[in-house]
Nucleic acid binder design. Structure first.
Lengths: 201, 201
DNA sequence: GTCTATACGAAGATAGAC
DNA sequence: GTCTATCTTCGTATAGAC
């Protein structure tokens, strides 16, 4: 009887995601995942017949699902501006809590992907698409055209990811806060039927 | 008499920058730089006593200067909207010309930097700061407050970098075009004394 | 400035026992 | 599911000759 479906396997995936965030894809070696998770080295290729690539791939899927869940939760309140504010705050908190060490694991994989593992680039792209689609649906539901809604969804994900990278590099939340403020004002102006004070100069 | 100040040294730095763009920091090994540049392996540590880290660092500086020069050229026309449009177009062209293989070398270093080479993170941060300051100066010159100008500068760099990552992952220029369109409209609305048609909904 | 040779470590992956 | 080798490749870096 397996320990409720392989404990060490799940721990390895979680550790891989954590290492991706803090040290990038290349630094997420099997050795480091084993050390971080405490999983036994003998069963690596039992759990992951596809080797390291499969492990990274599953970590990308897990991290993607996790963030997608947070986006879904934020969009439940049905206030697009608040939801996007919360999305930015989420990334700012992750940065601060980690001492500016934790970036986005999907970005890590997307940037470091090389030609011998094209599957990983596709997995990263799928995650990005899910995130931005979740935002797009929210915007479209609130009166934007499909085109504008999707455009804004992609734009916001791009701004967040770029800002996170800059925050990490300079050990400051300033880029993320700049992006959050600009997007906040932009949304106030873009969304119809919002009588609140916009900050259009 | 050195061949006009070491040919192979300059070629190595150029090759390192090219490899950073297309394959990331970890994949930019000394071996690959030598193969790409055709430089002789015997003189690596003669030209770069700091080893691989110094080589990467100089490639970051070179790439940073190159892009900064393009930003400066684009801002010469003294039209902020056109300059930013040109900046986006530059990245789109680089992506398309390379078959979506070339990303941003600074991002590669910023994302993959690990604790044993903190100098590289600082170099990346310096480059980001120079780029966004160049944009900020342009905006401030055209009537925005210092705060707003710098905020927009950081925001635009973040949006470009994030969009480039997404474009590479999904082999499409759509994210970059989405960001370019949104920023274009935002600038039209943000800058004072522009009688042209804004696209405020 | 450039050469060859080499030390040394880390990484991915496999084999075969238990 | 897990263990202990072990193979192979690749990476950084150094030594010493030319």
């Amino acid at each position: 009887m397996s320990p409720r479906r392989s404990d060490s396997r799940d721990r390895m995936i979680l550790s891989a995601a954590a290492l991706l965030r803090e040290h990038g894809a290349s630094a997420t070696s099997i050795d480091r995942v084993l050390a971080h998770s405490g999983a036994p080295r003998g069963s690596v290729y039992h759990h992951f017949p596809g080797g390291r690539t499969q492990l990274i791939d599953e970590a990308v899927a897990l991290a993607g699902d996790f963030i997608a869940g947070l986006i879904a939760a934020a969009t439940q309140a049905d206030d697009p501006v608040r939801a996007v504010d919360a999305f930015f705050a989420l990334w700012r908190d992750r940065l601060v809590e980690s001492g500016f060490r934790a970036g986005c694991p999907i970005v890590a994989v997307a940037v470091e992907t090389n030609d011998d593992a094209p599957q990983l680039a596709r997995s990263a792209a799928t995650v990005f698409a899910r995130w931005r689609e979740a935002l797009a649906v929210l915007f479209i539901r609130h009166g934007l055209t499909e085109e504008r809604g999707r455009r804004l969804g992609a734009f916001i994900i791009a701004a967040v990811e770029g800002a996170v990278i800059m925050c990490r590099a300079e050990q400051s939340t300033a880029p993320l806060e700049a992006a959050a403020a600009e997007i906040h004002d932009l949304l106030l102006n873009a969304l119809p039927q919002r009588p609140e004070a916009g900050s259009q100069p």
